[in-house]
Nucleic acid binder design. Structure first.
Lengths: 233, 233
DNA sequence: TGCCGCAATCTGTGATCACAGTTAGCTTCC
DNA sequence: GGAAGCTAACTGTGATCACAGATTGCGGCA
């Protein structure tokens, strides 16, 4: 049974590409934004009905997401959002620190004035959101994502960006689950500080500092999530 | 029209998992091993007929490979093995150096006596093959791949391994095309030397040296390929 | 009242058909 | 002899149907 039907009831905004592509982007966006929780079950038929299509495009989209590890599909069983073990989360965190840190370092050299302005704007938005007394968590998650991807896009490497998107597809559900249950963490300001340091490093063209700032951002959030013991093992 | 039908005529060895999974592994293995050249066209129907199945499992497999960038599928046009521009190849090379270098560094700390023995065996096999007067190129490519993945597997990170496999899926066709047309490069021994240095670094637990060795191996091969100007742009 | 087992309903998988857009080869005309 | 245009065969896309295994909840038994 589809446990989160409401997530599907809104229409797909995107209207370009094949139906499969649209369903893929629809589901991928929701995964990255943390609209699904680990363990959630989907059904091809339920999704296709909610979207007003046959199950074919949904099958292809789910198949792609499964290939990327963003969904799990066991033969004859319901498609699920993967649960993650603590060891796996530590593994993915170490990879994120290396890869996203590298992207931040690249961004120092490759950033244009345009992309720098974009990074600055995203930094400000996230900072202002987390300074609010009653912060909108969903908005904060989106703003955090926007800042990180502004940096990674500034690195100018399509390959790197694709790898990072795949990583976020996997951690999206966990990060969001954490933030939803621990809103106070936003107010501690670890992320704000790391973002500020990253921005400064890019401005001043100090690749090692940028790498370090992203590493501390990712490491801090991961340590917090692991300390909460909500993961398996 | 299927241009390389012979590639499909042999049966699929693997008999576990769904048909889609088997077709996926079948095609992925062939891509990594360089059995396809950039620009090759496939047809869902031709592949499915050669494999004795309906087109459904092939569709899903191709769809997954397309999601990983290993195949390109434009609506209503034949599926193709992607052509790569020089800029794109440079980009992917820089990412490979960072990611595969990181894996080699990790392997220093994580290698067990078993995995080290495996790496040594693969190093020897590749060295002996490239010392032969009339080396079998296909075998040399396979041996090179075996050495690299022995190292990466020793790093003990499933996440990293998945990312690297995806990268090889993309560069497989290009690397092999290069080696097929320039057999003399094998005899120059750049790869053999890099492999030896990498093995020594892992033995002596020197992560930076291991990273450096892999970087020089990848960088050397890429520089050679780029100098040959067989890529677009 | 609690547990076991069966049956209805769910799941993804695979095959087949219809369709529209693309490609390529052949014919025809210059 | 060569080029332009048309047609026939090919392409992936999407829908629908059949099937076998998994799940779940209801009913009966202890």
């Amino acid at each position: 049974m589809l446990e989160r039907i409401p997530a599907y009831t809104d229409a797909m905004l995107d209207e370009t590409g094949t139906l499969s592509d649209r369903v893929y982007r629809h589901l991928a966006d929701r995964l990255i934004a943390g609209r699904f929780a680990p363990g959630d079950k989907l059904s091809l038929r339920a999704v296709s009905e909610a979207l007003g299509l046959s199950i074919m495009p949904v099958r292809e989209a789910v198949s792609r997401l499964a290939a990327e590890g963003a969904l799990e599909v066991a033969p004859k069983k319901a498609v699920t959002v993967p649960l993650m073990r603590a060891a796996q989360f530590r593994d993915i965190t170490q990879v994120r620190i290396e890869v996203e840190g590298f992207a931040a370092a690249l961004a120092c050299k490759a950033a244009t004035s345009d992309s720098l302005a974009g990074i600055e704007a995203r930094e400000r938005e996230f900072r202002e959101l987390s300074e609010q007394a009653q912060a909108d968590l969903a908005q904060a998650v989106a703003a955090n994502q926007a800042f990180h991807f502004a940096v990674y896009r500034a690195a100018g490497s399509a390959e790197l960006l694709a790898i990072i998107e795949r990583l976020w597809l996997r951690v999206g559900p966990i990060i969001n689950l954490d933030l939803r249950e621990n809103p106070e963490r936003l107010r501690l300001g670890g992320a704000v500080q790391a973002h500020r340091a990253c921005l400064a490093a890019i401005r001043e063209n100090r690749p090692d500092a940028a790498r370090e700032a992203i590493a501390s951002d990712i490491g801090g959030a991961s340590a917090f999530i692991l300390s909460r013991q909500r993961l398996l093992d």
